[in-house]
Design a protein around this nucleic acid. Structure first.
Length: 265
DNA sequence: ATGACCGGTCGTACCGGA
């Protein structure tokens, strides 16, 4: 299948209802072919489908209530949409944190990994199991053999280089070894962290706390990742993070993560 | 300064985020 998705974006937008105009305008202005969204924070009935249609995008959403929620918008086709883990899932694995669609020849996954809260919290154990469950999902769907992008808010900083002040995160979720092992297990499937490959220096962040001064002082984390199968990683010529979007009026606390591909169409 | 935000909710305090 020819691949014509040239620009794929992942963005945790922290409520689509608050930021739908911002997202659609950004996508149009930046020529995004595919936009993988996380934290839409609404049910399907409240999702602003029309705004995406007017902006020239097909869009599919997977959300149930005011927590979580993921979506995929595409202007290069949106086929074989899959919502959540395959098959019926018992709570909390039924939370809307995962979806996939084939867009312009690329199997695209929008991923929102559970936060974990604290190392002693049951949600942290859930996070670790969820990452393992994702690994199995990617194996069972053959995604590592396809042209695929598994991107989203992983809520894990893979290394200390991905944290503005590692000492402050020593005993906190997002930086613990078991979480990092969960990410490494995905990488060991053959998926490549293309941000790290193209922006190898420390201090490359995708999230900054809303608290005053945090963005201005660049106190951020790199927790949004694009894990790409070999053919997509090889085709990736540029990776960039649009910090300007984080500095916008009433922004999400995450910036868009953009991967640019050489097309083969 | 153990401070500071933001989105959402049958809300006007609290939960969850990271």
């Amino acid at each position: 299948m020819p691949r014509d998705a040239a620009r794929i974006v992942s963005w945790n937008i922290n409520s689509i209802r608050v930021r739908v105009e911002q997202v659609c305008e950004w996508a149009k202005a930046n020529d995004a072919d595919v936009v993988l969204l996380q934290e839409t924070k609404c049910g399907d009935a409240d999702f602003p489908f029309d705004a995406f249609t007017e902006a020239g995008y097909e869009v599919a959403h997977h959300g149930t209530n005011h927590w979580n929620g993921v979506a995929i918008a595409s202007r290069v086709g949106l086929e074989d949409v899959a919502r959540g883990f395959d098959g019926a899932q018992a709570p909390p694995f039924d939370e809307p944190r995962l979806m996939a669609a084939t867009c312009g020849g690329v199997r695209c996954w929008s991923v929102y990994v559970p936060n974990g809260r604290e190392l002693w919290d049951p949600h942290y154990a859930f996070k670790l199991v969820w990452l393992e469950r994702l690994r199995h999902e990617l194996i069972s769907t053959g995604s590592t053999d396809l042209a695929s992008v598994v991107a989203g808010d992983f809520n894990v900083a893979p290394t200390d280089d991905d944290i503005y002040m590692p000492s402050r995160w020593k005993r906190r979720t997002h930086a613990s070894e078991p979480e990092r092992a969960g990410i490494k297990a995905l990488v060991d499937l053959g998926l490549r962290d293309v941000t790290r490959e193209h922006l190898p220096e420390p201090g490359v962040y995708t999230w900054w706390n809303y608290r005053p001064g945090q963005f201005e002082k660049d106190h951020g984390l790199r927790i949004d990742l694009a894990l790409c199968s070999p053919s997509v990683a090889d085709a990736t010529h540029t990776v960039w993070i649009d910090r300007a979007a984080r500095g916008a009026t009433r922004p999400s606390d995450h910036a868009p993560l953009v991967i640019d591909l050489t097309t083969s169409a």
